[in-house]
Every structure is written in structure tokens, then in C-alpha cells.
Amino acid sequence: MIKNGRIVKSLAGFYYVEADGLVYQTRARGNFRKKGMKPVVGDFVSFSAEENSEGYVLEMESRKNQLIRPAIANIDQAVVVMSTVSPNFSLNLLDRFLAFLENKSIKPLIYISKLDLLDDLQEMTTFKENYKKIGYEIFFDTDSLVKALKGKVTVFMGQTGVGKTTLLNKIAPEMDLETGETSEKLGRGRHTTRHVEFFHVAEGLIADTPGFSSLDYEIDNLPDLNNAFPEIAQMSHGCKFRECTHTHEPECDVKVAVENQEILQSRYDNYLQLLSEINKTRETYAKKRKKQV
């Protein structure tokens, strides 16, 4: 019998496919390997479901997006967990997460943890107001966050030590995630996620992602970087040059917007830093090619 469903768990070479309210254990056909393809959690697939025997994934539908680490596909939104302290709140790291997600066409949601450790919330309140103007949703409490998960496929990501696992255990106790001990010496936590799995929460699906302190970027060109900052992309339509870098060019509406405080100085600075990293990567690649010739 051939059925259609979505992979909700991947473990030890097995793919667990949910269809019609049931979960079937399957393996992938060998022809996927020959084509250089591999099913991942979140994939919509057709599969064989024979009674009392192991099923096989037969075909995969095209993906609207995908994360490489961990391997998850067809994601609607991602909750970026940022802590106020230990590790300290970083606009630079947050903007890197946001640019990464914008480039993947994944809607970002921002959750701030450890607010109870602050004596004064003014800085966080100002941050929330500024980023809401850009169009981002920021959450200070779990109740409002859970409402935003309804009917969506959501992944959670964040730097190690921000309390992401604690948050997930609070809103989805059934995940029963082991909280890594925080190393005072290293200033980061030990993440213990061993496999990728979706859980049904708030009439949607959520997945944990391993904690990490850096991102593997796929943004390697100016247009993609420009579009990864929505407010910069919007203002850039008024720039004189089509591929304005917003650095040295005359009649640049983005630079004017920064001067008029219509674009946050910190966002512009972080855009420039990412642009610089793209340019350095290009220069390194060009030097290597020159040596090979």
C-alpha cells in the first residue's frame, strides 16, 4: 500500500513517517543514495506501508527550505532564544541569526530568556520597541510564545547556555530533553541532543536544534545580504545604483536613513561586518584560484 506523509523523526537509518494519525517505521530506498539525495525530518514523502513489515520511502516532494545542521526541511518559523546574561545579550549574534533565517525564508521569532536576572528592563524594552518597528516579533513570556506556535512547524535555535532546553521542557514537557550542565570555565553549556524529532505542541510541530555559537552561512553575495536585512532592502530601492553596497556610493538612501535614525546604527554596523566577511571570503577564494592556475 502506498501512502503519503511527513517524516517526523530520523534515527539510526530509520525514518518515522506520520500519515493519517499513525507513525510508520521506514527506510530509504538505495536509489536516493545514487542520486545524492537523503530524506530528512520535515520532508513530505510517499512510502510503502505493508502490514507486519518495514516500509520504504519511495519519493520526496520538493522542499521550500532546509537547515543543514541539523537536517530539517519545510520549516515555517524559528524561535531564536537570546539570554540577557550568561551569555550576555548580543545584537551582533542576534542579527546574524536573523539574516540567516531571512535568507532561508524562515520567519524569525525572538524569545528573551533570563529577564529575572536583570535589575533594570529598560534596555530590553527599548530593544523590543526597535525590533518591532522592523517587523520582528519579540517574546518576554512563554504563554504568548506558545500561542505563536499554533499550526506551525517551528524550530528552536540559540547559542549554548541561553536556556533553550529549559524553555522547551517548560512548553513541551513530553520532549523530556536533558539539560546540559553549564561550564563556568568555558561559559557555555553541554548540549545533549542526539537525534532530530518533531513533537506535537500547540496544534503545531516543534523541533529542538543543537546549541551552537556560530552559524554556517550560505550568504555569499551582496543581493542576498541586502535582502536579509528587511529595512535595508526596503530603503535600497531608492538608492541611485542598483547594486549599491551602502558604503561609499553617492545618493544612497540607506546611509541617509541611518543618519536620520530610521535604520538602527547597530543593524547597519552588523550589515557592514557581514559584507566585509563576504568580501574577504571572495578575496581568499580568488587568491586560491590564482595559485592553482
Results as ranks from 00 to 15, higher is better:
V80K: 01
S113A: 08
I68S: 11
P70K: 06
M124T: 07
N92Q: 15
R63G: 05
S90F: 05
P87Y: 02
P70I: 06
F97V: 12
Q66I: 14
M124Q: 10
K114M: 09
S83E: 10
L115S: 01
R69M: 07
I68E: 13
A78N: 06
N88I: 05
N92P: 10
K132W: 03
V80R: 02
D120T: 04
N92K: 14
S62N: 14
F97W: 13
T125V: 09
L93P: 07
I68W: 04
E123L: 10
I106T: 05
K128G: 07
Y131M: 15
L93F: 14
R69Y: 03
L67T: 08
P70W: 01
D120N: 11
F100P: 11
L115A: 03
E102A: 13
L91Q: 14
L67V: 10
D95Q: 12
Q77T: 02
N65V: 02
L115E: 02
R69K: 12
D95F: 09
Q66S: 13
I110G: 03
S105W: 01
A78P: 02
F97M: 15
D76W: 00
F100T: 14
Q77A: 11
K132I: 10
V81W: 00
F89K: 13
A99G: 12
N130Y: 02
D116Q: 01
A99N: 12
E129R: 12
K107A: 12
L121D: 11
P87Q: 07
Y111V: 07
D119G: 06
N92W: 02
D119H: 02
T84L: 08
I112G: 06
N130M: 13
L115F: 00
Q122R: 10
N130W: 04
I75P: 01
K107Y: 06
Y111P: 08
D119W: 00
M124P: 01
Y131K: 14
V79P: 03
Y131W: 14
L94D: 13
I112Q: 09
V81S: 07
M124E: 09
P108E: 09
S62K: 14
N88V: 08
K64L: 11
V79R: 01
I72D: 04
K132F: 04
I112P: 02
Y111S: 06
K132P: 05
E123D: 10
N74I: 02
A99H: 08
N65M: 06
K104N: 10
I68Y: 03
D119V: 04
L117A: 09
R69G: 05
L93S: 11
A99S: 15
S62W: 03
N130D: 15
L118G: 03
N74Q: 07
E102T: 12
R96M: 14
P108K: 10
L117Y: 00
D119R: 09
K132E: 15
T126S: 13
N88G: 11
I110C: 04
L94V: 05
P70E: 07
T84D: 09
I75S: 04
F100Q: 15
R69I: 06
P108A: 10
R63M: 08
E129F: 01
